[in-house]
Design a protein around this nucleic acid. Sequence first.
DNA 1: GAGATGCTTCGGCTACGGTCGAAGTATGGA
DNA 2: TCCATACTTCGACCGTAGCCGAAGCATCTC
Lengths: 239, 239
Amino acid sequence: MKEGPDIAQIGALIGDPARANMLAALTGGKALTATELAAVGGITLQTASAHLAKLEAGGLLLPRKQGRHRYFTLADETVARLIESMMGFAASRGHLRHQPGPKEPALRKARICYDHLAGDYGVRMLDSLVAKGAIDAVGDGLALTAKGEETFQCIGINVADLKASRRPLCRSCLDWSERRAHLAGSLGKALLASFFDKGWARRTAGSRSVIFSPDGERQFLALFPVEALVFAHVFVPKP
Amino acid sequence: MKEGPDIAQIGALIGDPARANMLAALTGGKALTATELAAVGGITLQTASAHLAKLEAGGLLLPRKQGRHRYFTLADETVARLIESMMGFAASRGHLRHQPGPKEPALRKARICYDHLAGDYGVRMLDSLVAKGAIDAVGDGLALTAKGEETFQCIGINVADLKASRRPLCRSCLDWSERRAHLAGSLGKALLASFFDKGWARRTAGSRSVIFSPDGERQFLALFPVEALVFAHVFVPKP
DNA sequence: GAGATGCTTCGGCTACGGTCGAAGTATGGA
DNA sequence: TCCATACTTCGACCGTAGCCGAAGCATCTC
């Protein structure tokens, strides 16, 4: 039959454990060197080199040479979205890792999804913004309201700048740990960046998880309060 | 590192050409027997049986025994969404099939995406519905308007029934051939079903493509006119 | 009951892809 | 200039996953 585009190629690309680990690590948004990615994949540098060549040829990765290092990033936001959506799917089918591990809770609480905040805190933030009327949620789509535009200006985010770029302002991104949406798009990116700028939170060295400082956490929770009522209509039953 | 759910498993599942072909065929929405799927995959029945067992174990497929046949369907709408999104991604990276083939144009014009209409005609339908104000497009989300509810009642679609089900009414689904959204969800399903009921169109035997009758095509195009102005803001530039 | 059809299981073959050691190339620093 | 570091290429090894022929169940038809 052979209809349509070839999904087997990218499936196979993602289907190798070492490559999958590399891709998952790169979903953290940071550029990583071949050596770092080899460690992530649990393989030697030679093998990693071969894998990276394949991922690059497949259009999933973008290399950037800098001195004697080669830094790799996901080629595109669409790659990140694909990986995240596959994680969501895998989680829904129970394809979890064997070892929950000590890092797991931190990851579920707050982590980076390419360039924006995900996990419990990411979902909470979006919920709160919707409850405040800063963002409109229609179906599975998100849109900034006029009120929201004001709000973000006050926090110190220049919405006009964001609007100028071609990238969509708001995008919903399905969270694999919470199975609910969090905020992606250039606004999601700007918000996370501002948390880092303010010193509320920082990324961790070898992981996707985001660590809040005690003070940062207090401020974050105050800025994005949870209203119990909200959950009623946003709740999505787990299948 | 091993963070998060295991995407390698489902990647590998989709990564085999024979399995990928089977999954793509099942995205046509019809239940297919093991023998039919073997033909689709270009392999013998024994091999297909092994593949199907793996896909079933992975939670991608749902078997249904009927007489001496075993019919397989995609386990879930989420599987169909995953496959379609991978197709979209593959298409965007140029991972196309070698042979464009004679069926390709028909497929691009109108095809089934799990249970709703995709392709040029699918995109056109959504564009037209948005232009008419029957559906609200906010960001990448869709919502039925009050006016739309009336409209669909007139066409003979019982919106109240659809609302009763847990499945979302409107969902946007990215079209791999058009790289724009078309209408999924229970409303998308109901619309396609009504086209079949009215005899405007029919499915083809071994393919996902949808064939309109001359009269059906005329009616469809009249019902969903294109207004040039609409395209301006819906257009998404190809990267 | 006999035969045909649909599908699964078993066993063995094969090939491809992942793996690493060793050697080769580029870049940076002393 | 010389060495260390970062990475790639080459070559060889090996395991696994895909593949099919043959045989074994199950179900329908006559």
